[in-house]
Every structure is written in structure tokens, then in C-alpha cells.
Design a protein around this nucleic acid. Structure first.
Length: 286
DNA sequence: ACACCCTCCTGGAGGC
DNA sequence: TGCCTCCAGGAGGGTG
């Protein structure tokens, strides 16, 4: 499930592979993969466009075109793959399979394709990226995301910490894995209320979010099952996870058994010892 | 403003 | 072996 580090890894790879290339033609095999405009308009409008750059905003890939923007959200199992036209039948991931929904044929005999087993991912072709990205919160590794800024966000919310961290309108780019890892690093229980954090706890959470995202990006992301970069390479951060997916295993910090619970329909993994529900002051979740 | 539940999807895992 | 059911989960929607 691509979150910020995975999308960043893909963006960096794609930037080197497709920047400056012209989209000669496209093929949309599953129209619903195109969120906007219609699949027909998409095919017409994208033809002849030059890809100027590939960057990331939150969990979105942002392909700046000479005219407009192609935005891609991979959701759970979406992938963008590049290959040489001459070697398309030798791809590690089958070139022609039922899960590949959009093909973009580029100059220089390159092909960029969108594949998604679960069909949750979407492509957006827009003039103004704010149409899609406008509601996103700050970039957690950007200059605006200071501990003070996080404090303001936290004080403005009465939600539980875990759903707070997953809300892309508050912070853009965290998903289930890194939210759990950040909470563990900060020693904060997922059910703490956002506006209950002390200044020291806010500071810890801020550092934890940035550290885990930087480390995971340096590792090329986390591959639990499906994630691969655009060159089919898996990430390596799964070997460094402290709590996510580790129910029943010992906490790397204290040895206590990691617990899984469901918070708002989502798995949450935490260490009951390192992330106590009760605060020092004696109040708190449960 | 918040929680809660549903929908979208499919392959993989577990039960029998 | 094989069939059946359940489940993961990001985001957006509806409802209370």
C-alpha cells in the first residue's frame, strides 16, 4: 500500500525515466480508472503532451505536462510501470494482463502503464492540480511542517490520534503503516485524543513522523505484499518495522508483546508498554 | 465535528 | 484437493 515513502520512490524513478518524453498515444482498457475527465476525453487530451516532470504531493504522483497535469493515486495495489517497447514481453510483470488498465506510449520507445489488481487507483487529467490536491494538508517533510505547526493541527482536532494521522486533510502522505510506526516511536497510544498531547509529546510525534518517513524513503519503501517501484524493485523497510504487522511478536524496544486492535475499521498495532493509554496526569483513553 | 458503516475490488488465507 | 467465506484497506459517501 503505497504511502509517502513508496510514492516518493516511484516518483524519483519515473522522473529519470519519462521526463521530457512525449505521450504519442494512449490506450484505456478499463475506463473507470480515469477519474476525470471521461476516458474518451482523456485519450484525446493526453495525446501529444510532453511530460515535464514527475513529483509527489501527499500520496499522489504529479506528472506536470506541457499543458495540464496528470495526477495518479495508487491507493492499495496500483502501480505505474515503465518498460522498453522492444522488451515488453520480457517484463517481470506481464505486459498484457487483465490488471493493466491504462497504457501510455511514449517517444523513445518507452511505455508507461498503470496496473491495479484491486482497481482502487485512479488517474486524473486536470488543468489545475488544486482541483484534486487542494484539500491536502501540509507535507510532513516540507519546511512548513514544524513541531509548532503540528501542535496547532493537534489542538484543532478532538479526534483520536490514529484517525487524525490518517486524515490527508491534516497531514498529507501518512497511511496505516507509518502512522502506527510514528506512534510507536513517539510512545503514544493510538486512542489518545489529538488535543490531549503535551508540548513534549507533540515534539516527539513530530520527530517520529519525520524520522520514520525519511528512513522508509531511504529504504525505498515497505513491501508487505504488493508494493513494487516502477522498475519492479521491492522496498526494504519491512525489515525495520517495529509494530506494523507484528501482532504477537516482541516490541523491539521493551520486549512486550505487540497488540493488534481495530480503530475505525483499520488495524492498529502498538506496544502496550511503550504506548500506554493512560497519561502521566492520570486521564486518557481506554 | 465527530464516529460509524458501507462501497469499491481481488487474491490470498483459513476453515472444513 | 477444492470449495467457500472472510479479509485487507484509502478514500469518499451517507447517516446519526
Amino acid at each position: 500500500m503505497p504511502e509517502l515513502p513508496e510514492v516518493e520512490t516511484i516518483a524519483r524513478f519515473l522522473a529519470a525515466e519519462v521526463s521530457g518524453r512525449i505521450i504519442l498515444r494512449s490506450e484505456v482498457r478499463w475506463p473507470r480508472a480515469i477519474a476525470c475527465p471521461s476516458a474518451q476525453e482523456f485519450a484525446q487530451q493526453i495525446c501529444g503532451r510532453e511530460i515535464r516532470s514527475v513529483t509527489r504531493r501527499g500520496k499522489f504522483l504529479v506528472l506536470a505536462l506541457d499543458e495540464g497535469f496528470l495526477l495518479v493515486h495508487l491507493r492499495m495495489t496500483g502501480r505505474l510501470l515503465v518498460c522498453d517497447a522492444a522488451r515488453k514481453d520480457a517484463c517481470a510483470t506481464p505486459f498484457n494482463d487483465a490488471h493493466t488498465h491504462v497504457y501510455l506510449y511514449l517517444d523513445g520507445d518507452k511505455i508507461l502503464r498503470f496496473r491495479d489488481v484491486r482497481k482502487f487507483g485512479r488517474l486524473y487529467l486536470v488543468q489545475d492540480p488544486a482541483q484534486v490536491l487542494g484539500e491536502l494538508g501540509p507535507e510532513p517533510l516540507g519546511p512548513d511542517f514544524t513541531a509548532a505547526a503540528l501542535g496547532d493541527l493537534l489542538r484543532g482536532s478532538r479526534r483520536l490520534l490514529k484517525p487524525f494521522l490518517l486524515d490527508q486533510r491534516r497531514i498529507a502522505g501518512l497511511g496505516n503503516i507509518y502512522a502506527d510506526e510514528a506512534l510507536w516511536r513517539a510512545g503514544l497510544h493510538p486512542l489518545r485524543r489529538s488535543d490531549s498531547l503535551s508540548a513534549a509529546e507533540t515534539e516527539r510525534l513530530h520527530g517520529a513522523i519525520q524520522d520514520v518517513l525519511r528512513e522508509a524513503t531511504a529504504h525505498g519503501g515497505t513491501t508487505m505484499r504488493d508494493y513494487r517501484s516502477a522498475d519492479d524493485a521491492p522496498g526494504q523497510h519491512q525489515w525495520s518495522l517495529a509494530v506494523y504487522g507484528r501482532e504477537g511478536q516482541p516490541c523491539p524496544r521493551c520486549g512486550e508483546t505487540i497488540v493488534r486492535m481495530v480503530v475505525q475499521q483499520r488495524s492498529s498495532y502498538y506496544c502496550p508498554h511503550c504506548q500506554p493509554a493512560e497519561t502521566q496526569a492520570g486521564r486518557g483513553g481506554r
